[in-house]
Design a protein around this nucleic acid. Structure first.
Length: 201
DNA sequence: ATCCGGATCGCCT
DNA sequence: GGCGATCCGGATG
């Protein structure tokens, strides 16, 4: 199923209420926007990973884990944010997919910065090449000022939301194994724009 | 109460 | 390419 969304508009809930793998593909080219501390930053999504459901052993909401305080947002309705802390240091941003009660999500792994680059650089510690501003899930969360405070918010408007992009040629989408996981490491659920310089690897 | 290991990054060599 | 940082969720006792 394909959901067409006008460029610049926030996708309707039906866009997110689909399998995570489809949403992960369709989020490429969309724009993630944050307005926090009165400052707006935004970037084009160039790399995603899908965590497709309870049967996905790499998911924080895998069946062996079940529902917990940390992953509760994954059980919410499609189109909400799931933000978690990684390695005790970084924040990572996911978009919840599928119907309410079915835990699945798409990790946003890299952005091409398009708005608020100076703010991003400041949040990233001052001296930082454009290339490094939002390449990798931890970096992009830092650049956009996202933390656990945004866990569970709906992605329909400020402080954190997504705007549809112009659409991407499916031939430009490359799929491969997800990064940094051990379970189901061979499932090809990482998607990125082919040859794009802003992706994390 | 304690232990283990991460959906990472930056700095070092 | 390696390693330390630094915290918490989940498992085990």
């Amino acid at each position: 199923m394909t959901v067409c969304v006008p460029e610049g508009a926030a996708p309707p809930r039906s866009f997110y209420c689909r399998p995570a793998e489809e949403v992960a593909r369709d989020l490429l080219g969309a724009v993630l926007v944050s307005t926090l501390d009165g400052r707006t930053t935004a970037g084009r999504i160039v790399e995603t990973e899908a965590y497709v459901g309870p049967h996905d052993p790499a998911s924080h909401a895998a069946a062996r884990v079940g529902r917990t305080a940390r992953n509760a947002a994954m059980f919410g309705p499609g189109g909400t944010a799931y933000v978690y802390r990684s390695y005790g240091i970084h924040w990572c941003v996911n978009v919840v997919t599928g119907p309410e009660g079915y835990p699945a999500a798409v990790l946003i792994r890299a952005l091409e910065p398009i708005e608020g680059l100076a703010v991003m650089r400041e949040r990233r510690g001052g001296r930082c090449a454009d290339r490094e501003l939002a390449r990798g899930p931890g970096r992009l969360a830092q650049a956009l000022g996202i933390s656990g405070a945004q866990n569970g918010v709906r992605l329909e408007g400020p402080p954190l939301w997504i705007r549809a992009g112009p659409g991407v040629d499916p031939a430009m989408i490359e799929a491969g194994p997800r990064i940094g996981i051990r379970h189901a490491a061979d499932w090809p659920l990482r998607f990125h724009l082919r040859g794009n310089p802003w992706v994390s690897r």
